[in-house]
Amino acid sequence: MKKEIRQAKIEQLITQNEIGTQEELMEILAQNGIKATQATISRDIREMRIIKEQNAKGKIHYAIFKGGLPSEEEKMYNAITESVIDITLVQTMNVVHTLPRTANVLSAIIDELEVSEVVGTIAGYDTILIISKNEQDARLVRDTFKKYLKNE
């Protein structure tokens, strides 16, 4: 199947349904006669600038991002503002608590940016461990996050 046709169908399905996971999207695509791998779906989501947003009842679902193309740094700052609840510095690491199901997205953005103060990240359901080379770099990471926290 041509990418353009598949992506048009993905846009239609996301607009008409509240789809929350790649697995759900793969299933509904299959029901519509389109077979795609998880890697293909993931690539389509990135190319189409599909984001996750919360509805009025708090359910997270995919949506097509409308608006100007943000820089990678803006994506990180927006993700911090929208998803981070708290950050705790522990020597050369920061423990970041996020809203449920948002840790992986923020972690991927940080990894993609290749932030010089970050050696690596480990993400779970609602927590990210950000590892730095030294305490000074870890403090810089914490201070950057705190600037963008809603409750700060």
Rank of each mutant, 00 (worst) to 15 (best):
S116P: 04
K52T: 08
M26A: 15
M1T: 09
K2V: 07
V95K: 05
G58C: 06
A36F: 05
D143W: 03
A123P: 01
K2F: 01
D44P: 00
R43T: 04
A103G: 05
G120E: 14
A108S: 15
V105Q: 02
G68E: 14
P100H: 05
I10A: 02
V105A: 07
L13V: 08
V84I: 10
I5A: 13
T121W: 01
K52A: 00
T127Q: 13
T88I: 14
E82F: 04
R101M: 11
K59L: 09
N104R: 07
A138G: 02
N151P: 01
N94C: 15
T144P: 01
R139I: 04
K75M: 12
I60Q: 11
R142E: 12
G67H: 00
D137K: 06
E53I: 06
V90Y: 02
K147R: 12
I131C: 03
Q7N: 13
L129R: 01
N94V: 05
I131M: 08
I122A: 10
E112S: 11
E72S: 11
E152P: 09
G68Y: 09
D86E: 15
E82S: 04
E27H: 09
T102S: 09
Q54H: 07
E74Y: 03
K66Y: 08
I50P: 03
Q54R: 15
Y148P: 14
I34E: 06
F145V: 15
R43A: 06
P100M: 07
E152F: 04
L29Q: 07
G20H: 00
V105D: 01
N78L: 03
I122M: 10
A108F: 07
A103I: 02
S132Y: 04
N104Y: 03
G124C: 02
K2T: 12
E18I: 02
I14W: 09
